[in-house]
């Protein structure tokens, strides 16, 4: 049996692992290599420059700006959609009429691409005829002309709102799935014990939603790390780098300025940040696993 198992392990794993190693692992390790060079993307006669790129990072003001924006982006882009999704899931799960229609409406944006979403929200934030200014103007009863995406103060926040709008549906579906998997018995016990609705949610439902939260957070982390597209479409990192993230900064340095070596160094830093997040995540996951199986 062991011999056959070995045979099938090799047969099954060889293709996926080959693809994974060639297209993910190998590039990942080469990133480290390029980060010590001054490669420009075309010439093959680049030089080894030691830690120069990393030293440059330390003095790169734009890098700091991007790092701060990335942190804000990550926290907000993970937290907001998860919270909205949870609230929506609880509301819909209260056996409200038309629940499945609401579900579809809130889920709809997930099917849209970052390009379409970005595009649409650019129109919402459009200074002259955008929905945002139209509505505010209607409420304030005077013409409102604010350029949301063109002002450093509001650019990043505006994109985060658009992002949250798109991502909320996903966490909602997962939380709904989590809610349906909570056993009826437990809810009935609450009723017999005379718990109020809020007590029931806080003491029973929230803890039992922990496995769903684990998934929501994982997906949010994955998605927000990939949140390059929407920023690129909506602001391109501007104005004045106010919505620049590390991913965007890395793209600009590598593919606009052709400083591939420096870009690699930035991606190495990005990698190390991701690695830290993964480690924290897996640690938490282990704890959750111990409790909820």
């Amino acid at each position: 049996m062991e011999k056959e198992n070995r045979f099938w392990q090799i047969v099954f794993l060889s293709l996926p692992m080959a693809v994974f190693v060639i297209l993910i692992i190998w590039p990942l390790t080469s990133s480290f290599y390029y980060s010590f060079t001054n490669w420009n993307g075309f010439n093959s006669d680049y030089q080894y420059v030691g830690f120069d790129n990393f030293i440059k990072i330390l003095t790169d003001k734009l890098f700091y700006q991007a790092a701060i924006n990335t942190s804000i982006w990550m926290v907000a882009a993970i937290f907001l959609p998860s919270l909205f999704g949870l609230v929506l899931a609880l509301l819909i799960d209260s056996s409200v009429p038309g629940g499945s229609i609401f579900k579809s409406i809130f889920y709809l944006p997930i099917c849209l691409s970052a390009v379409v979403v970005g595009q649409t929200w650019v129109w919402i934030y459009q200074p002259d005829w955008g929905l945002m200014n139209t509505v505010i103007g209607f409420i304030a009863q005077e013409k409102f002309n604010y350029a949301w995406l063109a002002k450093p103060d509001t650019a990043l926040g505006s994109v985060i709102l658009a992002w949250s709008w798109q991502q909320t549906g996903l966490s909602m579906v997962i939380y709904l799935a989590g809610l349906t998997s909570i056993s009826e018995d437990l809810i009935e016990v609450c009723e017999i014990e005379g718990a109020s609705t809020w007590q029931r949610i806080r003491l029973v439902i929230f803890p039992l939603l922990t496995p769903a939260t684990v998934v929501v957070i994982a997906l949010s982390v994955i998605n927000s790390l990939k949140g390059f597209d929407i920023l690129y479409i909506m602001t391109g990192g501007g104005p004045f780098n106010s919505s620049d993230t590390l991913a965007m900064h890395m793209y600009n340095e590598s593919f606009k300025k052709y400083l591939m070596g420096y870009g690699s160094a930035i991606s190495v830093v990005l990698f190390l940040i991701a690695l830290t997040i993964i480690r924290i995540y897996f640690k938490q996951l282990k704890k959750v696993d111990e409790i909820y199986g």
Partner: peptide, 22 residues
């Protein structure tokens, strides 16, 4: 298995340059 699913968490930019070269 852990190594493979860790791949989900990495921003794609990390492997962009070497892939471009490849």
């Amino acid at each position: 298995f852990l190594v493979i699913i860790s791949g989900m968490f990495f921003p794609p930019q990390v492997i962009l340059i070497p892939l471009f070269r490849l």
